[in-house]
């Protein structure tokens, strides 16, 4: 049942992802191919293609985010809930479906974003810097990617959990939903910064993140942020897990449809 629901959910959420993602990659490739044009018209074409590729990739992420949140509310609270919530499955299956669908959709978005950015900017000096980073700071890059993945997962689960908890309140349900979402998401950022601050007081090497300046060489900045990326990757992963169980438990307790 989970697989069937996941397939339906994933296809609905990503209905337009192929257009945005494919468009962004084609535009990125076209921009790359026009890099060496030196005429005024050539430069205008290159810059226009670059802007369009960036717009398409932003559109991709925004569209997938919006469709994930809309589908979550439609199928668990609004009209379509009358169908979905009367299917013979446990509430936890609905929760897992939306969580997994969001996670995989965002992973695909991340790959698309990185692909487009690589097409647009991975050349010359940037490529040399990346090569050096890959040789000397692989773990930093891994934790940076984990931070990105779980930070977005935190965003998704903040909205999902807030939708359920807000709906479970007796009055001002929409206001409560908004407040829960802000508290969950901003709470994560404040907690992480607080943790980083406490750790920087305890461990001098950790304090480097607060000492990085714009005139420092890029690789030194990355080195200063190494510990922070490890902390943030682990923090967002744990925070996402906590939100996952909070939302799942709330949905299992029950929530009224509109």
């Amino acid at each position: 049942m989970l697989t069937k629901l996941l397939k339906l959910n994933f296809l609905w959420v990503n209905k337009f992802a192929l257009y945005f993602g494919g468009g962004a990659l084609i535009l990125g490739l076209a921009s790359r191919l026009t890099t060496d044009l030196t005429s005024v018209v050539g430069i205008i074409i290159h810059n226009t293609l670059q802007s369009l590729a960036i717009s398409a990739v932003i559109g991709l992420v925004a569209n997938v985010l919006a469709r994930s949140f809309v589908h979550f509310k439609n199928t668990l609270i609004r009209d379509e809930a009358y169908l979905h919530r009367t299917l013979p499955v446990e509430p936890s299956v609905h929760w897992n479906t939306h969580t997994l669908s969001f996670f995989f959709s965002m992973l695909i978005c991340l790959v698309a974003v990185l692909g487009v950015l690589a097409l647009l900017f991975l050349k010359g000096e940037v490529w040399e810097t990346i090569k050096t980073l890959l040789e000397s700071h692989v773990s930093t890059i891994v934790f940076l990617l984990l931070t990105l993945i779980f930070e977005v997962t935190t965003l998704g689960l903040s909205v999902f959990s807030a939708t359920i908890l807000g709906r479970r309140t007796h009055k001002h349900r929409n206001l409560a939903t908004g407040l829960y979402a802000i508290v969950f998401y901003l709470g994560a950022q404040i907690l992480l910064l607080g943790l980083a601050f406490i750790l920087s007081q305890l461990f001098p090497s950790f304090a480097n993140i607060f000492n990085a300046t714009s005139d420092m060489p890029f690789l030194d900045v990355v080195k200063n942020f190494q510990n922070f990326f490890i902390l943030s990757g682990i923090f967002y992963a744990l925070y996402s897990i906590a939100l996952y169980f909070l939302g799942k438990r709330s949905l299992e307790k029950g929530v009224d449809v509109e």
């Binding site: 809930a81 009358y82 919530r85 009367t86 029950g254 009224d256 449809v257």
Partner: peptide, 9 residues
């Protein structure tokens, strides 16, 4: 009816 269908708690 919604309560019987677990749509309202």
């Amino acid at each position: 009816i919604k309560t019987i269908n677990t749509l309202i708690i």
